[in-house]
């Protein structure tokens, strides 16, 4: 059911530009106004969310320690999973953000010479699937930078060459396109097929996946099947970047669909779980060093509380204490 709701919503998002840019021919709206709007919403929304998180203080230093603390000099500390320095913490974060270290932890294969063999297959796939998706996503994003730069920086050209290194087909087939489709399919299927995951999945979980699917598929269609005029598209995109928008007539509805879906993603992004992109950097269990007893952390809203002071307490027990020979302050 949840998946169905999401599918309907994404289909609606596909139909809107087909009607608007295709049938009605509102090219300026779909080619200029909406992209500007979406980009603005994305940037402001993203900043708003990050600032909103940032405005809440971090009252306590609560790293989840994944290894030996720094204690006695002869005990070997795990400097990455239980870092006590800034450098260690940064490394931990880098490994977390770029390589999904915590997810990978799941997959470390452990061998037991026991009667039961263990398999961590499903978890390993999760790490692999997640990594495959994210890497492909960012490579594809980098490849698209050629539409927004003139001359195209060498870096983006290299990435593109690398991505097409298989040298199959004309135009050259990009590895990331296959990979991202497979990864998305995997991420979708496990939500549908594994009952545990089906149980926890919300319509929004499916929505994000379907939206990405639609974007990738419309992109692939344009590149390999319903060829779009790259030169004209670049005219449009460069115009957008240089704030001198120009709408070439020849651009087809498919391109506007692709663009509209991307705009939808941009608009949706800041208000959804996709903000994990920004949030992961702010997670206090990961981005804080395990140096609690070395360096005091200050809680900005620390406030005085009602205490039961020693003096009050001694007043209650003084006689008994004296009788028992326990030292007291006031005789």
């Amino acid at each position: 059911m949840n998946a169905l709701y999401a599918l309907i919503m994404v289909l609606a998002l596909v139909i809107i530009p087909l009607l608007g840019a295709g049938a009605a021919g509102w090219h300026a709206l779909f080619g200029v106004v909406l992209p500007y709007l979406a980009f603005t919403v994305f940037v402001l929304g993203f900043l708003y969310r990050v600032v909103k998180w940032g405005r809440s203080p971090v009252p306590f230093k609560i790293p989840t320690t994944g290894g030996q603390q720094e204690s006695l000099p002869w005990i070997r500390q795990n400097r990455i999973d239980s870092p006590s320095t800034k450098t260690g913490t940064v490394i931990r974060m880098i490994l977390e953000v770029l390589l999904f270290r915590s997810l990978f932890r799941n997959t470390r294969v452990r061998l037991f010479k026991d009667e039961t063999q263990l398999s961590y297959g499903s978890s390993k796939f999760l790490w692999l699937g997640a990594l495959a998706f994210h890497v492909s996503f960012f490579v594809i994003l980098a490849r698209h930078m050629r539409f927004f730069t003139e001359p195209v920086p060498a870096l983006f050209n290299w990435i593109e060459t690398l991505d097409g290194i298989m040298q199959v087909g004309v135009p050259v087939l990009f590895a990331t396109e296959i990979v991202i489709l497979l990864a998305l399919a995997y991420l979708f299927l496990r939500r549908v097929l594994v009952p545990q995951l089906r149980y926890i999945s919300l319509p929004t979980d499916y929505f994000a996946l379907f939206l990405l699917f639609a974007i990738v598929i419309s992109g692939i269609l344009m590149r390999y099947f319903v060829r779009a005029d790259i030169v004209d598209i670049k005219t449009l995109t460069m115009g957008l970047i240089q704030l001198q928008p120009e709408v070439p007539e020849s651009i087809g509805a498919l391109f506007y669909t692709h663009l509209f879906l991307v705009c939808s993603l941009l608009v949706y992004f800041p208000w959804s779980k996709l903000m994990h992109l920004g949030g992961v950097f702010l997670s206090p269990t990961r981005n804080m060093p395990n140096d609690n007893r070395m360096r005091r952390h200050v809680n900005p809203w620390n406030y005085p509380v009602k205490l039961h002071t020693y003096e009050e307490w001694e007043d209650e027990y003084r006689d008994k204490m004296k009788e028992a020979g326990i030292p007291v302050e006031k005789e």
Binding site: S102, S123, L202, G279
Partner: peptide
Amino acid sequence: VFMDICVRCGA
């Protein structure tokens, strides 16, 4: 942050 960023990956 914890309210916002869970993607329900199931790990």
